[in-house]
């Protein structure tokens, strides 16, 4: 203590104490409030992964999105602040890298491997934050309420995606894709980031628990059997009408032709 006692009247002592207390308060504040967001992210970004992501970005993405992900006017949006969730959704569904500029990027086999996708996601996340990739626990449908999920899906999603997620059309060549192949993580990310024409359903609009209910409905309705027989695509009465005309009426006309046909001499 004599070392401190001896220097307690040093001209810099006051500044040092103030600096020490500021660091202490700042650290405490960071621990109490802000820390959880980055701490819960499953993407444990390290500098090597970010560097790999940056290289992949320069190879596959920078042509349209710019060398620094700043975006190119009229061609591709800037990616600073979109977050790892957006990158993971776009790349893991194969929508990015896009084959061509169009109204809507179709789902296709992904070009990057899952680890490469995470690397690019980590790089974009490092540029300016944004929603991270949801954890396995966040997208788990264990214990989710499928009935509530159906209600929520019909109220929020079915207007574009159809009542079982079979997809639907939008204006100007855009469309709401079928959700028959989407993974729980992709569905969660889509709600969080609002890709293409889709609105963002943030955690205030649709709570994380409700998101899990919706995911449970979307993924479980696929396996739901059709007790009435062949499903006709579950796209509403249009295919039913086609079956009524091309199936039922056509069959009945064939039956009428057969019944009224002149069978040799039996009739004559």
């Amino acid at each position: 203590m004599s070392w401190i006692t001896a220097r307690r009247r040093h001209p810099a002592a006051g500044y040092l104490v103030v600096a020490f207390v500021l660091v202490l308060i700042g650290t405490a504040y960071a621990v109490i409030t802000g820390g959880s967001a980055s701490a819960s992210s499953p993407v444990s970004a390290n500098s090597a992964q970010i560097a790999q992501g940056r290289n992949l970005f320069l190879e596959d993405c920078a042509t349209c999105h710019g060398m620094f992900a700043q975006g190119v006017s009229g061609q591709a949006p800037g990616l600073i602040g979109v977050g790892a969730a957006a990158v993971d959704f776009q790349v893991s569904t194969g929508r990015m890298p896009a084959a061509k500029l169009g109204a809507e990027n179709p789902r296709k086999p992904p070009r990057l491997t899952p680890s490469q996708t995470r690397a690019v996601a980590a790089y974009i996340q490092s540029l300016g934050g944004g929603p991270p990739i949801p954890s396995a626990a966040q997208v788990s449908t264990y214990g989710a309420n499928v009935g509530l999920g159906q209600q929520l899906f019909v109220a929020n999603c079915a207007a574009c995606h159809n009542f079982v997620g079979a997809g639907g059309t939008l204006t100007d060549g855009k469309y709401a894709p079928a959700l028959t192949q989407s993974t729980p993580t992709q569905i969660y990310e889509a709600m969080l980031t609002g890709p293409e024409a889709m609105p963002v359903f943030n955690d205030l609009t649709v709570t994380p628990q409700e998101k899990r209910d919706i995911i449970a409905y979307v993924t479980q309705v696929r396996a739901l059997p059709n007790p009435g027989g062949f499903s006709l695509g579950r796209i509403g009465p249009v295919t039913e009408g086609l079956v009524a005309f091309l199936g039922l009426l056509f069959f009945m006309v064939l039956a009428a032709l057969w019944i009224t046909a002149k069978h040799g001499k039996a009739h004559e």
Partner: peptide
């Protein structure tokens, strides 16, 4: 035969009516 092998109007998939909800591909019968 049609009723045995082909599903028509699966109301359980549409869910109960809710005035604020609507599905893509909502069509009347032909």
């Amino acid at each position: 035969l049609a009723a045995t092998f082909t599903q028509i109007n699966p109301i359980w998939l549409y869910g109960p009516y809710n005035p604020v909800a609507m599905s893509a591909g909502s069509q009347p019968d032909f």
